[in-house]
Design a protein around this nucleic acid. Structure first.
Lengths: 357, 357
DNA sequence: TCAAGTCATGGTAACGGTATCATGTGCGTG
DNA sequence: CACGCACATGATACCGTTACCATGACTTGA
């Protein structure tokens, strides 16, 4: 929209202060504010009215192309800066979408390291391209007036709690949430297809001839619960029943521990689906420690496809999700809602990246 | 400042539309816009003037405490929303700081995974607390009008190139940059003390009795160059000269490759300082592959203290930096500059976390 | 008793854009 | 020649807030 590509172009003349050229009705005075020129100033300079300047800068077809060019140059030359607040006030919207990131204290943030950043990148890219600003906040800062003024809201964070969702919902602003969509949800949810992720791994194991698979992870996270569901359902179709090994921590240690525990209990298993790459890497170490081999004796698949996993030895197979794509989709949904269109919840496909394990 | 803590408080009555209660001079008409009440509306409701409402909501000492309370309740009850655009227009500032993140295409982004997120958290926390909004953009989006309107700028990204810095500097807005400060820099730079990081590792190696240390990394990044400088200088004080093993990639593979290369060339070494944890972990694997042990034969220290490193086996020693603290500092510096105070470049201390390697 | 000094409140004019409804020109056509 | 129409531009009135400078009531002290 009113995107003036001025970065990098040096203004050739300094704006000399306002008071002189201003049609001040009361003050003839000399207090020279060091503010830039306004549309009214450009208008006077060009011998036109400010509305024409507004139209020229806004690419309106109503102005003569030559006039537009002339005004453009003038704006350039005098270092004109468009005032967004004024436009937003007049237009009665903020052209802003608030992104609220729920940062957990820090404990299992590990799991989400690569995640919000990619998401944020996609969101920022798409929203900026549409002429919207991205207002970043944490949950604590969400009470601030600027957030309330946003035209739209994006909620980020694992297992965003329902109460938080409702709280923000009350602001009466278009809202889109990242995560696992529960069936009864009234709001729009975008997330990667965790169920599919589980199913894909199940099929993979089945094709490899694995018949005694184990799932490692913490299914109390809604997203991970879905992975488990998909995994169990797909295996069930082949009359296979996987074992659930519950682990709360998403660290390599935890994965190693899980395997040792299985081994100690004499459990017979030939495949492991870990719901995080870190867990998977730990599990592989555990498997090797108890004298078995990957992928010879046991197949292992992780989740998230961390860059690290690819250069792990043996190179880790993992379920890949495109965070950036997710961010873009989130952004598109809010924009649609803001425009008054409807938007449905959507899940993004995931893909299994098969490497050595 | 004008922070109205309204999230979560449900407004008890719906605002019934404007036209009726409005002192419209021309239109007596019925077009009922579904916009919320304004200060003027509250004023009429309270039998006061809008300026008094403004003062009450703004905690001005000029209004009677009882009046203030009354207005507060009224605002609450009618779901009043403060209009930031109007205030910003009037006050001639945006109360906004733009954060420009330079996202590399994706190649060695690995290195920076945990980094911008922590930084961003700190920035957001501090800025929000001060009543400022955080406007997030990538470099591509930085030409947008909203960025130009920001009261301040924070530039994030490894080795932010000088040209970019100058480009943004021309906007004439207070700016703070994250990274390694070069001596001749005119702008304010905040970064962690890479030189100290190198020195600390050097001392650690020396105390352990290591005399043939190797540095692995890519010193063409300014920040990493500093680490190398500190490392070399501190070792130099003990008349030790480290070997530089240049590696462009920051992956484990690259680290493993480096060690194999050293081994193949018959280089004698007893300590490795890798300028990234991933590199360090790869190096450890390489060391083990060529039949030597960590930390028995070779000591290894990484950089960044990734959560992963702590649960690596053997647990990785690493140089730790507090990203969040860095973000807070960045925020404080811009705020100071915005207030017209001066601010100096500053480096944050780092600490060596000694684990098993 | 009156000047001076609080305290609480109000009138008015900005801040810098854009929507709405004119206005004025030139041109083609019946 | 008058009419309608497209085109280019303008006058005016807001959008919702706060700064500036009153104004009136009531207190205080000489």
């Amino acid at each position: 929209m009113a995107t003036l590509d001025q970065v990098g172009h040096e203004s050739e003349s300094q704006w000399e202060g306002r008071a002189l050229s201003r049609t001040s009705k009361k003050q003839g005075g000399g207090k020279l504010l060091s503010a830039g020129p306004t549309m009214a100033d450009l208008a006077r300079l060009a011998g036109l009215s400010k509305i024409t300047v507004s139209r020229a800068l806004g690419d309106s077809p109503l102005v003569n192309p030559e006039t537009r060019e002339r005004i453009r140059e003038l704006a350039q030359k005098h270092g004109y800066k468009f005032n967004i607040s004024a436009r937003n006030l007049r237009l009665r919207h903020s052209h802003t979408v608030a992104v609220i990131v729920e940062m957990k204290p820090s404990s299992d943030r590990t799991m989400f390291d690569p995640y919000p950043l990619g998401l944020l990148g996609g969101i920022s890219q798409e929203l900026t391209a549409a002429g919207y600003s991205v207002l970043l906040t944490t949950r604590q800062g969400a009470a601030v007036a600027a957030v309330q003024a946003a035209d739209g809201l994006i909620l980020l964070g694992q297992g965003v709690h329902q109460d938080a969702v409702h709280r923000f919902h009350k602001l009466g602003v278009p809202m889109v949430v990242w995560g696992a969509g529960l069936k009864g949800d009234s709001h729009v949810v975008v997330g990667s297809d965790n169920r599919l992720g589980g199913a894909v791994v199940a099929e993979y194991f089945f094709r490899l001839g694995r018949r005694r698979p184990v799932f490692i992870g913490n299914p109390s996270h809604p997203e991970i619960h879905e992975r488990l569901n998909g995994f169990v359902a797909a295996l069930g179709a082949h009359a296979i029943k996987p074992l659930l090994m519950r682990r709360d921590e998403f660290t390599p240690d935890s994965g190693t521990g899980a395997v040792h525990s299985l081994h100690a209990r004499g459990v017979d298993f030939d495949a492991i689906f870990a719901c995080s790459d870190l867990l998977a890497m730990g599990a592989i170490r555990g498997i090797q420690e108890v004298g078995r081999s990957v992928p010879g004796d046991v197949s292992v698949v992780g989740y998230d496809d961390m860059p690290l996993g690819a250069s792990f030895l043996p190179a880790l197979s993992s379920v890949h999700q495109d965070w950036q794509e997710g961010g873009i989709l989130l952004a598109r949904k809010v924009l649609a809602l803001i425009r008054g269109e409807s938007a449905a919840s959507e899940t993004l496909p995931v893909s299994l990246v098969v490497r050595s394990t």
